[in-house]
Simulated scan of single mutants.
Amino acid sequence: MTTIPRDRLRELLDAVLDDENDTVAEMATDAFTSPFHFGRQVALGSGESPMAMRRRVMLERAAWQLRQGMTVTDAAWAAGYGSVEGFSRAYSRAFGHPPSTSAGRHWLPAPNGIHFHPPTSLWVRATEQTMNPLVSQLVAHDLDDTAALLGIAETLPEGVLRAPRQSGGTVTAWEGPEESICAVLDHHVHTKEVWLAAIEGADDVPRHSDADVATLRVRHEALAPRWLGFIQDLDDRGGWDDRLIDALCDPPESFVMSSVVAHVLTYAAHRRQLVRAMLAEAGVEVDSGDPILWFRASRGEE
């Protein structure tokens, strides 16, 4: 008689991902152990805490379900969120775009190769490509913070958004003046659109200086998954030293991809803080934009 060896880690993972288990205590009960030992065993075996793994895999499942046509509301309930707003915030932080925008992939970075595999299984990658956490945080913070600033700006009157606040002010010499809140946000969104066009081999993207903030928000929601997907693909294949020959430049120029990402993130951070200064000048209460506070909030620590 052949005895199949017991796979204790798989039993623990089954308890983590059981739809009926919302807390570590419930998971531990299913696994016939104490919450303390359960959390310790899962962390040692997978490199991830039970709740962190559950949240991540449930978001991966939600991304797949949304691609199959499930509504955002149903995906939120299925993932265990008490509100659509809470689900949308968590989903946007994880994937870099709201759940209403289709995801190019449904796997998120993981320390253990454990992922949701449709329709109800797990997939364990032999080797997991995990993005450098610094790059991941910088990119995610930029996209999340941009969406937050656009959301604030969208509530303000056009007069406040277009009022000149730094006469002749420029961020880069080749892009012209950025004297108002709307102008800075427009340049900020347009920068990624231009680089993505060059990377994807598309036509140049003209800048519409008269675009309103609602339009900028829609444009940002469209570019966010493309930009995040580009960064993830670049990191997955170790392409940071690849070169882009940008035919949209006159004459064409060559750029190392890591320098392109550093360029975009540097000016993005500057423009976001510039918008904050302009909002404060206009009497609008705004946060500091500190990535430390954003990171803590994204982990549910605040």
Rank of each mutant, 00 (worst) to 15 (best):
R67T: 02
D242C: 05
E253A: 00
F116N: 00
P98V: 01
Q137T: 07
E85T: 05
D203I: 01
V16N: 02
R217F: 03
H37E: 14
Q65V: 05
A103S: 08
V261E: 04
P251R: 07
I152C: 12
W195G: 00
S49F: 07
A15V: 05
N112F: 02
V286Q: 10
F230M: 06
P35C: 10
R162V: 15
S121C: 10
S136F: 01
C249A: 12
E11N: 11
G229S: 06
A31C: 07
M70I: 06
V42I: 00
G82M: 05
E11L: 14
S254R: 15
E302L: 07
E193Q: 09
P109S: 07
D235R: 05
D22N: 12
L44W: 08
F255G: 12
P109Q: 11
P251V: 10
Y91T: 06
H220Q: 04
W195P: 00
R89G: 05
W123Y: 03
L244Y: 09
I4R: 04
L274V: 08
P291D: 15
R89I: 12
L248E: 08
T3A: 15
D7I: 11
A197V: 06
L228K: 14
S209H: 13
D142L: 02
S259R: 14
P252E: 04
R61V: 12
T101E: 03
F116I: 03
R272S: 08
A103P: 01
I292V: 15
A277K: 10
T215R: 01
L12T: 07
G283W: 13
P35Q: 07
F95A: 14
V84T: 06
I4H: 07
V205C: 06
T172Y: 08
D30N: 15
M58G: 03
A147P: 06
A280K: 09
P99T: 03
D14M: 08
V205W: 00
W64T: 03
V24D: 13
N132Y: 10
G82D: 12
V261Q: 06
P225A: 12
T29Y: 09
L185S: 03
P177N: 01
A163D: 10
H187N: 05
S209F: 11
R8G: 00
D212L: 03
E158V: 09
L185N: 00
G176S: 06
L156M: 02
A280P: 04
T170E: 07
N21S: 13
R217I: 01
D7Q: 14
H220W: 04
S88P: 03
L156V: 06
C249T: 11
V139E: 12
F87R: 00
E179D: 08
P98R: 07
L13A: 13
D30F: 11
S102Q: 15
H188E: 09
V264W: 01
L134K: 06
M1E: 00
L244I: 15
L223F: 09
